[in-house]
Design a protein around this nucleic acid. Structure first.
Lengths: 218, 218
DNA sequence: CCGTTAGGTTACTTGCGAGTAGGCACCCCG
DNA sequence: CGGGGTGCCTACTCGCAAGTAACCTAACGG
């Protein structure tokens, strides 16, 4: 009996397709992030989206398609956020610093996006993992380019290139895993994570135990 | 009609329970590592194990129990391997070095164990992730102790402790992710991975671009 | 004011896979 | 030579969730 909800119990209002698609994707990300691909049910997605199941099939296709859509959208968001944070004319360490800050800011704000990308998509083989790996490769390249250019600047191009990709992978992995660790230790503020990593990968333990500390240039 | 396989088409030979349990666990690790928890079917496990489904239920319980058994066995194997590689009376960097080598050696030899632990168990919430996290915590503590003790040795106990766990998490994460990356770039020999990481976390980019290189003492 | 289409739904079919009931066969021990 | 226990299997039940058929209705153009 309130004023609204007067016709049939609850039939969704008519909305343009683009809006519904967004709602559905949002719901899907949420559900997939909670249960993972296989345990997530289309029924739950439809419920959370506030829309009935056939709409999903009609707009975004089968479960697989839906999941791919999620991954792609979130991966692009994430990379866009990181790239937007980087100022290409700064010194290498400052670039890295800004990239990391953007990354953790993103994870903090879009926790579910991150969960879907990192925890869920990886565990389902096939096309999904490929999709995520493509994103990671882009991230690794970003970092590798940074390493190599920093090395080249001082005449170490060759050596930097040979191990550059591997190190970049390790660094990206460290960042990812720290983000993951963070999900279970949320009391640490997000700026701190980035500086831990900077201290770790820029200075290294050897310098750290000597009392050295990395800080962003003013 | 060869000599064997003479009675009914193919009925498994009678074997003691302990042996069958091992076979089943081996098969389960293999299947879970390929498909992940949810997609793996008990039928496939039973087929790979060369044993029929009810045996699994009777020996190792339901699917969940089976998976837990796998995780626990593999986690213990892994940690045992790493701990066995560490010589506690060496310098911190050498301890780390040996630990990393053991770790990558393990991953190389028991690829499927690693996949189950890292890629699969994490993505299924609840009791499984807890199990794996318990293992990771042990690993992190191992490393954190190393960091802290290295710091304490030079009077930096306080600072090392505050960030020690986070850094250890990052380092463990870097090692894990590099292992993961390795699964898709298997052409790199395993010793190299460990030295990349040593260079990264012990020296840091700042030293590396100056041309510094970390090498194991003699 | 009527047809057509795009937004939306209910209620079904279907297949797959977890888990089980009930029974056969081998071997040891008396 | 029996029993009985332990290893092992065939052949089912049954529930859940993916995907679909068939239908309803608001709105807009002519």
């Amino acid at each position: 009996m309130t004023e609204e909800a007067r016709r049939s119990p609850e039939r969704a209002k008519r909305l343009p397709r683009a809006v519904r698609e967004k709602q559905i994707l949002d719901a899907a990300v949420q559900v997939f992030s909670r249960h993972g691909y296989h345990s997530a049910s289309m029924d739950e997605v439809s419920e959370v989206a506030g829309v009935s199941k056939p709409m999903i099939y009609s707009y975004l296709g089968a479960k697989e398609d839906l999941f791919i859509h999620c991954i792609r959208r979130e991966a692009n968001r994430l990379l866009a956020a990181v790239e937007a944070g980087i100022k290409p004319d700064l010194a290498p360490d400052m670039q890295l610093w800004h990239g990391l800050r953007s990354f953790y800011a993103f994870v903090a704000e879009y926790r579910e996006s991150w969960t879907v990308l990192h925890r869920q998509a990886m565990s389902v083989g096939g096309p999904f993992a490929d999709e995520v790996n493509a994103m990671r490769e882009r991230a690794i390249e970003l970092v590798a380019a940074l390493v190599v250019s920093a090395g080249a600047r001082r005449g170490l191009a060759e050596q930097a290139e040979s191990s550059g990709e591997g190190m970049a992978a390790a660094l990206v992995g460290a960042a990812e895993s720290l983000a993951d660790w963070w999900l279970d230790h949320s009391d640490v503020p997000d700026g701190v994570l980035a500086s831990w990593l900077m201290n770790l990968v820029w200075l290294g333990f050897n310098d750290l135990v000597e009392g050295a500390v990395w800080k962003p240039a003013e």
